[in-house]
Design a protein around this nucleic acid. Sequence first.
RNA 1: GGACGCGUAGCUCAGCGGGAGAGCACCUCGUUGACAUCGAGGGGGUCACAGGUUCGAUCCCUGUCGCGUCCA
Length: 889
Amino acid sequence: MLEKTFDPKSAEPRLYAAWEASGGFSPIDDPAAEPFSIVIPPPNVTGQLHIGHALNNTLQDVLIRFERMRGKAALWLPGTDHAGIATQMVVERQLAEAGNQSRRDMGRDDFVAKVWEWKAKSGGAIVNQLKRMGASCDWSRERFTLDEGLSAAVRKVFVNLYQQKLIYRDKRLVNWDPHFQTAISDLEVEAREVDGHYWHFAYPLEDGSGEIVVATTRPETMLGDTAVAVHPSDQRDKAMVGKAVRLPIVGRPIPIIADEYPDPEKGSGAVKITPAHDFNDFQVGKRHSLPMINIFDDFAKLNDNVPVAYRGLDRFAARKKVVEEFEALGLLREIEKTRHTVPHGDRSGVVVEPYLTDQWYVNAEVLAKPAIKAIEDGSTVFVPKAWEKTYFEWMRNIQPWCISRQLWWGHRIPAWFGPDGKIFVAETEAEAKNQARELYGRDEPLRQDEDVLDTWFSSALWPFSTLGWPENTEDLRRFYPTHTLVTGFDIIFFWVARMMMQGIHFMDGQVPFKRIFINALVRDAEGKKMSKSKGNVMDPLELVDDYGADALRFTLTAMSGQARDIKLSRQRIEGYRNFGTKLWNATRFCQVNGCERAAGFNPATVKNPLNRWIVGETTRAARAITTALDGCGFDEAAGGLYRFIWNQFCDWYVELAKPLLNGSDPAAKAETQATAAWVLDVMCKLLHPVMPFLTEELWGQTADLGVPRDHKGFLMMAPWPDLPPSLIDPAADAEIGLIVETISEGRSVRQELNVPASAKPALLVVETTPAQRAIIEASAPLIAQLLRVSEITFTDTAPDGSIPFVVEGATFALPVAEFIDLTAERARLTRDVGGLTGEIAKLSGKLGNADFVARAPEEVVEENRERLAEAEGAKAKLESALKRLEAAG
RNA sequence: GGACGCGUAGCUCAGCGGGAGAGCACCUCGUUGACAUCGAGGGGGUCACAGGUUCGAUCCCUGUCGCGUCCA
């Protein structure tokens, strides 16, 4: 017999190992099977599984298990990302903590070797954590963005795009992260609002005729000023245009120019221009051919282009010194407090500097066009659809993508420089040398670009590089385009958009995936984003330890509704753990009661109404869940499972089946046992994608009950239920519906009037239709048991002091006068009559409205008429009962 | 500043043109066993506010207020 509860701790590792060993995670070989593929959003190889991963991967696993059971060749392709900055950062920090040499002291080769070492040590962790969640990835196909095959793909893409002039080298301002000493892309810059100041500086005119005041939030940049600009329409300063000011501290004369950029309404109307350190000023500088004076080094310390006293100073120290010096010179006019946004590196958290360097860029605008079209024409769809707006918004305004990073951990850029600075881009060094030899006419020493590529450059290739591209592999032919991408909205720009661009460009216009499901963001119970600094992170593995993977999976699935963020609480997980236990125990009950699979059982031919009803309900549930999963309606699927298994099967079917299982009709008993066994098998299948462990365990433990199943192996591989609507029997629905309602109403009356649970009055059936009477007669023992009444009696009039209730127009009464409190009963009847009166007023008002009757659809009008009639009937019955009660009391 | 989303029971959320729902929390009761990780019953909501469209609005439109996110 089954244990009292499911034990995830022992079952999960055992079942996972068995699944994996069975080879069932790999797509089936059948060439006729429709392919269904998902590529995992690769987690950082050295990362730890957080709750967002848990959600994202649960949903993917639900989909892949569902489609696998539907008979498709289901491939969930896993892998990890080398995560350039993040990983390099971790290793550098570790070196520092261990008191080791710094990266720079160590040198590139040794450092990279260290990172590989760290990857080898910690790289398996996240994979094992995914396994603990039950992720049925095909581990035999696992990839890593820096493995040999993917690196080859990266080189090929780079070279091709370069040849197509879609990758180019350019000197322009980039976002420079002084902490990592690398360029970062626009997306990696986070605008943070901070308190700051406007310092108003006076720049004296060179001819001594006065001064011009400029305001800045970054005083240190004045050391690199090469002009002062005023708006051409600005009357105050018009006379000054063409003159020059002498830049204080530096002593350099710089021109006053007229340009559209300054806002004449703001401050003095004049702005200082630092073309090498401000994106707007850079444009002004270009328009006016101003010198661009770079005043920083890679660490954002001041370089030799500034006066001696400033050289080597940190930018913030320099800021202070500049302000002090202006004050000392008597040129500080005003200090104004302000709140403004300042760009910060998303990884480093330090203030990012616009910095003039040579970098590699992708001409994203060209690649974006077909990627936009693919969404417009529906080749790829977003679920929920609303996210396409976000996608379009960004894609239609896309900027050149800076892809070079001054890091060591990543794909080294396949470009070599000749002695004269000439660039040779090739997939191999040998090829670059050939190109050089051709150009120079002899071998010249080449120097490979020191930089590596943005991590997202390689992740952009993930949907095809992992399938073997650039080789024309069988996997690539079979599984590209992938079917569904499941990911978070926070990386629509970073990743999704770029996969669309690269996928379409390199795969002959074929999109990388047909559907993009954007999952919600997980937050804590207070709705705050989980973060280590807030100390509110929930460790999914801890939750798995405490409640089992299935409970966590069900919770995440149930809460994955699309419009909102998920606020996760332990209480909720506990509730779904209980749900699993409920099914477990229902199975246990069935087992104890001899519910076994019967030879030749056919759900279409069961006789007993209860069994016909549950077959119908099972069919409805199966169809609803299938539809939901098919459309990524994960929360709907979970809700459907919950209601079906708990509220229908456990609460009603099992309870109503008890008399049959203990009864004297052997045919009904046998049929009920067989039906229950059949429903249990279907439930296991339907629940399996969400709760794979518990269901697989139940499947295994009930394998020997009755005749063997058609499907012999793991539940994981069992065929998904395909139940025709013909299994739904409206007559059985009506019959069980009346019984359920009668029991519910009767219970309600008992409890509200405080009839002791131990009391067993009779149930009087006062007035019914013949059909209702037949149903009640046939199910009398059943109703009697569940309503805890001694017998069911048909009578024409309810005796004095009996308590009436109305179900579907039928009148019942409970003769429980001796137990009850007249006041409570009067209150109950008065309340119910009041409720009905309100409903009647509403309905008759509606039906009295000629417009409503004329314009509303026929069935709506009819439905309202029926409701009115029923309410009026019920009200009359309860009113007469109330009158009798008044007379008696 | 621009865009999007959200304001429904104490909490978390579903519903999104025709009878206000679920889970949790709360209150009452609990019978000789599938399950106390449980069962039965109950209380609790002018569906943010103001207009409009409609025979009819929680649902559609407009505006206001509040909250959130993304982009500048």
